[in-house]
Amino acid sequence: MVNNQVVERKDSERPNPSTATTTQSSDEQEVVIVADSLSKHFGATKALDKVNCKIGGASIFGLIGSNGAGKSTFLRLAAGVYKPTEGTILYRGQVIYDNPNAKKEIIFVADQPYFYFENLKKMSALYRSLYETWDQELYHELLQIFPIKEDQRLDLLSKGLHRQAALILAIASKPRLLLMDEAFDGLDPVMRQNLKRILARQVADDGMTTLIASQNLRELEDFCDHVGLLHDGGLLFVEELDKLRLGLVKAQVAFRGDITEKQLKSMGLEILRFHARGSLVEILSRNTELELRTILNQLSPLLLDVLPLTLEEVFIYELSRKAYIVSELLA
């Protein structure tokens, strides 16, 4: 009885993907990106189809999806590279496409960065002239952190350094919205940590909003506060990262005798996965930890360990609910 009520409440809490909101606390924080029924078609291919979402200010938003899911298309629409086929995408209420007022606050670091000039010295001069928010001091600080010299020939750099050069320019421009395609790719762990620290400072100081696309959930799970999952051009869900784990609990239990899934269900546990290995049983259930412990303790278990739930497991669960196969996402 009690459990049913709890479950119902959680269901209503779970946002409908079509109206998913990611604002931290929507009253306080301004919404930066609003996509309304956003579609981008390339001929017969629907790269994005009727995507609705809101991305809140100062958020670090992770956009996850496999190749061809529509991540890059979404970023290009947010950067004003593409014009939507249908629907709209707005930056602080403004159309982005062909609108320098919006674009001067947005920087897009593409998966394959391009440099108009041959070195950072000339490139930085170009950025300085284009972006009013350019911070020369920060630029020099970044040059110390990243192993690239100002007069180094950019076209001779490796893919990883290429990306780092693009990040230097992007971050020193102090955008209000930073779009990054596969941002952490090609960065070693030290650089990765450096980048996170710099981004963390920009978010804290300037309220910069960051949108990172990645194929790899693990790359993002320790840094984002919100995640959106794209599949086949559709946004499956958008959720606050910590809320994803709420209401789901994983436990390892052992009982004296055998116990069946049915038995546990009859006691009020909402089992999502039941996996027995000998006397050891692993349970994934849609309950709070307290509920799980209270119910299982009635059976006097020999062992009851609540295990941390990885985001992968959450995603697998969320997706299996939608009957999608996403093994490639988690590879």
């Binding site: 290009r76 950067a79 004003g80 590279v81 062909d98 609108n99 320098p100 007022n101 674009k103 001067k104 947005i106 920087i107 897009f108 593409a110 394959q112 960065p113 391009y114 440099f115 108009y116 284009l130 972006y131």
Partner: peptide, 18 residues
């Protein structure tokens, strides 16, 4: 004509007219 250049040029704060 190139994806990387299009990404770069079209995301700069310039109008297509400019």
């Amino acid at each position: 004509y190139r994806r990387d250049t299009v990404d770069f040029e079209w995301s700069l704060p310039l109008t297509k007219n400019e």
